[in-house]
Design a protein around this nucleic acid. Structure first.
Length: 633
RNA sequence: GCGCCCGUAGCUCAGUUGGAUAGAGCGCAGGAUUCCUAAUCCUGAAGUCGCAGGUUCGAACCCUGCCGGGCGCGCCA
C-alpha cells in the first residue's frame, strides 16, 4: 500500500456504504472526506446530511448505518482500526503503527516523494517575467519571476511537460525614452566607465527622461502656451464653477499629461521621431538600441542567475510585434471580424459575451498589443504542440486577458479552456504603489543584496570562526531562501503590503526556518554516522501522537502538490512545508522523543528513519520552490 | 458611470467544490537547554470574520443592498 492508496481506499469505502444505502453517485461525490476536528473523534470523517432528504432518515441514523456497512467491508490489509458515528458524522481512525509504516515506506523508497502525482500529464507553456528593457527589475518583477519559475517547477514535478518562456519588451516608445535621454545627456557613459550594472545605467536615463519631461511640462504649464489647451479642457468640465485657474492647474496638468507628450512636447516629438527612425531601420538609432539593450540583457542575466530563474526560450518583442496581422486578416475573411469605414479592423465582442468592440488593426493598418498576442499565441501552440498556455501577468491586466482568450477561442475553438492567466496582485510599499519613473521602487538587485547581507550578519554572529567563503555560501542560500519563501507564501492573488524594514524575517514561518529544520536533520544523521537501513521492525515501531503528527503532515505532501499544480498556487507548498517542519520540531524538542535515549533499537531506528524522511521531503519540496538547502547552517 | 478583486486577532496573512470548537507567523506576557544547532520548542492573552438582510439542517464561504479600499474600462503596452 502507498500513500495515494489511503485516500483511494477511504473513498472506496464511502462509495460502497453510501451506494448500498441508496445514494446516487452525484450525491456521494459531493460528500468530502476531511480531517476530523480532534483526535478523539477520529482521523478523518464525512457528514451524512446530504442523504437525509432522499433516504428520509435522520443524519445520525444514516451515519450509524454507514458505519455498520464500512465495518463489514474492512479487511486485514486496511490501516483503518475504528469506524464510529459521531452524531451525523462518520469518523474513521487509523491504526497508528500501520499508517506510519505505509507513509514512511513510501517516502523512503521514492526518488522524490510527491513527484508525478498527476494521472494525465499534458504539455504546458509558461510565459513569465516579460520585462521592459528601459529599466532594472524591481520587487514586482521579483514576484512575477518567482511565481512563474515556481509554478513551472511545480507543474513539472507533478508530472507535466513544461516549457518556460520569456517575452522581452525591447521596443516601443518607452524604450526610446531612455535612448533619447542617453543620447542627449549620456556623454558616452557605459557600464564599464560608470561601474554600473547595464540595466541600472539604462534605468538611470529612463528616470532622467521623466525628469526632463516634467521640467518641460512645468515650464509649459507656467507659460501662456497652455492657455488654448486649458480653455478647451475647462469647456469640457462641468464641476469647476467658481474655481480659479490656479486651483484648476493641478487637475488639468494630470489630465493633459499624455496629450502634452504627444502634441506639445519637444521631447515627446523627438522620442516619437526616434521610434519612427527605429521602425524605418535607421542605422544610427538601431545601433544605439542594440548597444543599450545589450547592456540591459547582460544586467538581466545577472539578476535572473542570482534569482535562479531560467527559460527554455526567450522571445523579443522586436521580432514578434508584427505577428498576428495575417491571423486578423484571415478572421476578417471568415467573417469573425469586421472592417470599419475608416479601415480599422475590429471584433464585435458581443458574439463572445462581452459588450465592447475590440480594435485589432488600426485605421493605418498597424497592429495593437492584442494583435501580436494573438499571433504569438497561435504560433506557440503550433510550434511547440502544447496543450495549455499560462501567462503570468499582474491582475491589472485581467481584462486584457479576458478579451485575448475569447478572441483566441474564436479563432481556434480548440484553444478554448486551454489558456490561463496566472493573475497576481500588486506589491505595495508603505507609501503606496511602486513607480519606476519616479525612482520609487524596491530594486530587485538591491533587495537580494540586502537579504544576503542580513543573513551574512546573522551567520557571523552565530559562528564567528567560519571562513569567509563558507559564510558567503550560506548567506546567499539563506538570504535568497528567505526572500523566495516570503514572496511565495502569499496566495498569488493577494495584494502584498511590503514594508522593507520588517517584512522579511528569518524566524517563524520563513524560508530559513524550513532550511534550518533540514540542516538540523542532516546534523542528526552525521551524529549517528548515517541513517539505519529500512526494516519492517523499525517501520512498524512508530506510533506516538507526536510521531503521528509528523506522519500526517508528510502524508499530506503529495496531496498538496496536486492542489498546488491544479490551482497554480505555490503558497500551498510553502504552507505544507512549514507544517511538516513545525510537527517535526515539536516532536524533536519533546523530552520523551530524544533519539539518544530510546532504548528499543527498532524504535530508535524508526525515529531516525522518520527524521530522514522529513529531511528528504523538505529537500524535495524546497527545491521545487527554487530554494536551496544547506547541510549546515 | 460600468466591470472585476479585496475587507478575518494590534500587524502581515491562511481558511481547498458551504460542514464539527475560525487558524498561522510576527508582536505582547510568561516559561523550556545534564540531549543530536535556541534561525528551536511550550503556555497564555487577543476575533460582533466590514455592516444589514436572505437562502440552508448548517454560512467567513452562496444571493441582495450598503460602507470602505484596490484595479480596469485606449486605434497605449
Amino acid at each position: 500500500m502507498k500513500v495515494a492508496d489511503i485516500e483511494k481506499r477511504i473513498d472506496e469505502l464511502k462509495q460502497i456504504a453510501l451506494s448500498q444505502l441508496g445514494a446516487d453517485d452525484e450525491t456521494i461525490a459531493g460528500i468530502a472526506v476531511a480531517d476530523a476536528p480532534n483526535k478523539d473523534m477520529g482521523d478523518v470523517g464525512f457528514p451524512c446530511f446530504a442523504l437525509a432528504k432522499t433516504l428520509r432518515k435522520a443524519p445520525p441514523l444514516i451515519a450509524q448505518n454507514v458505519v455498520e456497512i464500512i465495518k463489514e467491508n474492512l479487511s486485514d490489509d486496511d490501516i483503518i482500526s475504528e469506524v464510529n458515528p459521531v452524531g451525523p458524522y462518520v469518523n474513521l481512525k487509523f491504526d497508528k503503527a500501520k499508517r506510519a509504516a505505509v507513509v514512511l515506506r513510501d517516502i523512503l523508497t521514492s526518488e522524490a516523494f510527491g513527484e508525478g502525482v498527476v494521472t494525465e500529464p499534458s504539455k504546458w507553456m509558461v510565459e513569465y517575467s516579460a520585462p521592459n528593457t528601459n529599466k532594472p527589475q524591481h520587487l514586482g518583477h521579483v514576484r512575477n519571476n518567482l511565481l512563474g519559475a515556481s509554478v513551472s517547477s511545480i507543474l513539472k514535478f507533478a508530472g507535466h511537460d513544461v516549457t518556460r518562456v520569456n517575452l522581452i519588451n525591447d521596443r516601443g516608445i518607452h524604450i526610446c525614452k531612455s535612448m533619447l535621454a542617453y543620447e542627449r545627456f549620456g556623454e558616452g557613459e557605459t557600464p564599464e566607465s560608470s561601474g554600473m550594472k547595464g540595466d541600472h545605467l539604462v534605468g538611470k536615463y529612463y528616470v532622467r527622461f521623466s525628469k526632463e519631461l516634467s521640467i518641460e511640462y512645468g515650464e509649459w504649464l507656467a507659460s501662456d502656451a497652455k492657455n488654448d489647451a486649458l480653455g478647451a479642457w475647462k469647456a469640457e468640465q462641468d464641476d469647476i464653477d467658481g474655481k480659479s485657474d490656479a486651483e484648476l492647474i493641478q487637475p488639468f496638468s494630470k489630465a493633459y499629461e499624455d496629450t502634452f507628450f504627444n502634441k506639445d512636447s519637444e521631447l515627446g516629438a523627438a522620442t516619437k521621431e526616434m521610434l519612427r527612425k527605429w521602425e524605418a531601420g535607421d542605422e544610427e538609432v538601431v545601433a544605439l538600441w542594440k548597444k543599450m539593450n545589450q547592456w540591459v540583457f547582460d544586467g538581466f542575466d545577472e539578476t535572473y542567475a542570482r534569482l535562479g530563474v531560467e527559460f527554455e526560450k526567450v522571445y523579443y518583442e522586436s521580432e514578434t510585434y508584427l505577428l498576428g496581422k495575417d491571423v486578423v486578416l484571415k478572421g476578417l475573411e471568415e467573417g469573425k471580424f469586421q472592417k470599419l469605414d475608416d479601415g480599422a479592423v475590429v471584433c464585435d465582442m458581443n458574439q463572445v459575451g462581452l459588450d465592447t468592440q475590440k480594435v485589432l488593426l488600426r485605421r493605418d493598418g498597424t497592429s495593437v498589443y492584442t494583435t501580436q498576442d494573438l499571433g504569438t499565441a497561435l504560433k506557440r501552440f503550433e510550434e511547440f504542440d502544447i496543450d495549455n498556455m499560462i501567462y503570468v501577468v499582474g491582475d491589472e491586466q485581467n481584462y486584457h486577458f479576458q478579451v485575448l482568450f475569447k478572441l483566441l477561442a474564436l479563432l481556434d475553438e480548440r484553444l478554448d479552456g486551454h489558456l490561463e492567466h496566472l493573475s497576481y496582485g500588486m506589491v505595495l510599499l508603505p507609501e503606496g504603489k511602486m513607480k519606476s519613473r519616479e525612482g520609487k521602487v524596491v530594486d530587485a538587485d538591491d533587495l537580494m543584496a540586502a537579504m544576503v547581507e542580513l543573513a551574512d550578519e546573522g551567520i557571523r554572529e552565530r559562528y564567528p570562526d567560519l571562513s569567509d567563503d563558507e559564510v558567503a555560501k550560506r548567506a546567499e542560500a539563506i538570504g535568497l531562501g528567505a526572500l523566495k519563501y516570503y514572496v511565495l507564501d502569499f496566495n498569488p492573488k493577494t495584494t502584498v503590503h511590503f514594508d522593507p524594514a520588517k517584512s522579511i524575517a528569518f524566524e517563524g514561518r520563513t524560508g530559513p526556518y524550513c532550511m534550518y529544520s533540514y540542516a538540523r536533520i542532516q546534523s542528526i544523521g552525521r551524529m549517528f554516522e548515517g541513517w539505519p537501513e529500512s526494516s519492517e521492525g523499525a517501520l512498524n515501531a512508530l506510533g506516538t501522537d507526536l510521531e503521528l503528527e509528523v506522519i500526517k503532515e508528510l502524508e499530506r505532501w503529495p496531496h498538496m502538490v496536486d492542489v498546488a499544480q491544479r490551482l497554480l498556487d505555490p503558497s500551498k507548498l510553502t504552507e505544507q512545508l512549514f507544517r511538516i517542519c513545525k510537527a517535526f520540531s515539536t516532536m524533536y524538542n519533546d523530552g520523551d522523543h530524544r533519539i539518544k535515549e530510546i532504548g528499543d533499537p527498532n524504535r530508535r531506528d524508526g525515529t531516525l528513519l522518520l527524521t530522514k524522511a522529513v529531511g528528504d521531503v523538505l529537500k524535495t519540496g524546497l527545491n521545487v520552490l527554487g530554494i536551496n538547502v544547506l547541510d549546515e547552517m
